[in-house]
Amino acid sequence: MIKTGSESVHFRIPVNDERQVSAQPGTGWMMRWQTWLLVLVAGFIFSASSMAWSAEVHRMELTHHDFEPWDFVPKPGDRIDIHNHSDIVHAVYVTYPDGTIVNLTETAAQLPNTTVSWTVPADAEDGDEYVFRCWIHTVIRADMKVQVPASQ
């Protein structure tokens, strides 16, 4: 059913555009197929050259004055969730191997029962050490050594 009136016409403009794109169905379909193939191949090559593994999510628990023991070894691209299960505020930051400091919250205040996240840089190298500390409670410290899987 074709609607009349300016509102309907205005509404249909994108539809007409789409039709224009698909005015030659065979060619359009081929172009899109080739494009997607190209994207897939490029993506495959890129992923093979950067990370030949899937990123994981790990969890660390923050108590009053310590990280609870953890048993994972982070890889580049892995996400680490840090949950504050104490009843006090923490302010965790990460020191990179080159000395760069990254705060895990904008105001550096992690309220009780909240979670903050940090992702291991994709370009982290095997053996790079990232140090987690709390600005408020300097006794809190976790030294996290990154391991690049051998399959790379």
């Binding site: 302010a91 105001t107 550096a108 600005w135 408020i136 409670h137 300097t138």
Partner: peptide, 24 residues
Amino acid sequence: AFHDIGLESLDPGRGAKVPSQLVL
């Protein structure tokens, strides 16, 4: 640990040693 315990002092304390956005 480090805390602002609400003294009248204007001394920024640890605030002068850490990134400025760390309000606490």
